[in-house]
Design a protein around this nucleic acid. Structure first.
Lengths: 199, 199, 199, 199
DNA sequence: GATGAATGAGTGTTCATTCAT
DNA sequence: CATGAATGAACACTCATTCAT
């Protein structure tokens, strides 16, 4: 009944998160029940509460951490890039890589916003706006540099993001096109969308 | 208690649908409970079952009807149009008009697929594929006609659909841009995306 | 599964209250579980909620109704009595009769105050103060009339109430003394406590 | 993690008892949870079990020790007093002092009897009867000595105890009346209750 | 002795669904 | 048709208790 040999809290926590992401992705947050989640990581229901706070709070933390990680990875990837076209390409690559490698995370990150409390929602929407703003900056800089010409900065940025994020609706690792090929296609689509001089 | 005067069964059904769409849109199908839904239309829970089938079946019917209506409206709108560029423009206009006028319906049509049974899911995915196929045909025809040049027909069509559908994530009737202006912007974006010769 | 023949909501409600009083009296509010309570009235747990609100709210309503009934019965009993000594005797008789006939109700009325929310607590303490105030008025009137002489009006009134309420800690219907004999003894004790001229 | 410096087991035990009394007093034994209790004394839940037996047994010990201490203090206070009136005064003083200084202990001593097992209950009721019997002896002796005249020895003794114990329902250290004044008032009430010749 | 982790048995509450009236 | 009442299956969450470390 006591603590079994060789278990660590942090490891269990990671396992719980992974299992939760899978379940939320498949059937949604509301449909994820904690008994099943506990079973996924070989725990009884009660034990789960040694690792996880309230279900609702857990979702908030989860989505927030996903967004934070996205922002952090994005910053790393963009480091040192100055030229708008290079930044656009890097952004498209990054976004696709993240949204295909972390398909489930990004899906629930979009899907389960409505399951958040108002307070959680505000917090996470804030982080999303950060990301948006950085993409908008790329589009704006390229425009200033005369690389492309967009009708409406805000709308075009949102359109660009929709374009890319939509991939996760149908992307499959074993799909017809390799990831690299996909990135190339979308880099070209992005450039076209912005109305770049040559494409 | 008998039926109050002036209330017809069909009317109640319509009211229930409307209320259900609102609730599903706000918090999701799983989070919609039938007691509240009944209250929305001034019924007690038990009475709801005189109008509505099982909750699960109700969702299936709802989503199917939404898709059928979309397809029907689409067909009407495209009637008589032959020229690919005209058809593209008409499609963009139609899609945006539908997805903004019927924001809730289309949102739940995308969102709640996962709440369907396998059988329902298959049926509705089939209808969505119909729609996709019609859009793909426009893209293909324009390509054959030399109006534009896409790298990958399937991917580009999906990208075009993502681009447009994404609007419903942020569109607000009282937003900065009028609907007409939005349509113009997106018609241009679509044309660019496909790599049309002139833009 | 539907509604069985010949059951009425009001009757069930009464049965639930009675069973709850018994259980709370025996083991306390916290120890009363709703599954057992449902079983007491031949219901499954879920059905209980057709009659009873939240457990916490149920307790508040219960205690409030008990106090209201006490106040109402008290008013009836005191009707028409003017003379302080007669009112004192009537009060003692009433209090003992109520606290022995409704032993459980009054016991939990005293005991479970701590299980109330702050808001409920305030409401019910208010009713108790009403009762106290009426008793205090009797003591004060007799004092003004020169029937007795107390050191401190408030304390003596509380002492008188403690004296009488204590009975329910040990009273048993089949006890050594009949209720009538008990009333006589306590009427005398009350008179003495107040320092009445003759006793 | 070993034992922090300067912490002895007996001290911890005392701290736990004190915290437990506070919690039981506020919300009752059933509502006291051991995690919170541990936190009160800066321990984690698991560590509590190095100091405290089963929760149920803990309560039994607690109440028994309270009663034993009461009896012991009572014996000390009454030592050497022979004359009934002096003993009555001393008892009243003692009872009030104990029930105000140890308000919480005596309150839970009365309140939580019902949370005991049958075996514990019997043991503690026995101790209470000891106390009662000693008070009854005082009343009886005074009666024999012609100091006062009661209708029924048992009932009057219980009434006297109710009268005094009731104080802890409303007593507050910062109340209107000082403790000494209160004792005087109740000594007079007690004497009156017994029907003493002069008062 | 202190701690984190695990466990099983509960506990209040919700909900879709059914059916006699 | 509307309603109140009943049902069973679930659900998130709590808690006393145990034990390897």
């Amino acid at each position: 009944m006591g603590r079994p040999a060789g278990v660590s809290g942090a490891e269990t926590m990671r396992a719980v998160r992974k299992a939760a992401i899978e379940r939320i992705w498949r059937h949604g947050f509301e449909a994820m029940n904690l008994r099943d989640l506990a079973a996924d990581v070989n725990l009884r229901l009660g034990s789960l509460y040694n690792h996880v706070p309230q279900k609702q709070e857990f979702l908030g933390n989860l989505l927030e951490d996903i967004m934070l990680e996205l922002l952090q990875d994005f910053a790393l990837r963009m480091e040192g890039l100055e030229e708008p076209m290079a930044r656009l390409s890097a952004f498209v690559r990054f976004h696709i890589e993240w949204h295909t490698a972390r398909k489930q995370e990004t899906f629930i990150g979009n899907m389960e916003l409505r399951s958040l409390t108002a307070e959680q929602h505000g917090r996470i929407i804030g982080l999303r706006k950060d990301y948006e703003a950085q993409v908008r900056a790329i589009v704006a800089d390229g425009q200033k540099a005369g690389l492309w010409q967009v009708d409406d900065l805000r709308v075009t940025t949102l359109a660009l993001l929709s374009l890319l994020t939509g991939i996760s609706d149908w992307y499959r690792e074993d799909g017809r096109l390799g990831q690299e090929r996909l990135i190339r296609i979308y880099q070209r689509l992005a450039v076209r969308l912005l109305g770049a001089k040559s494409s």
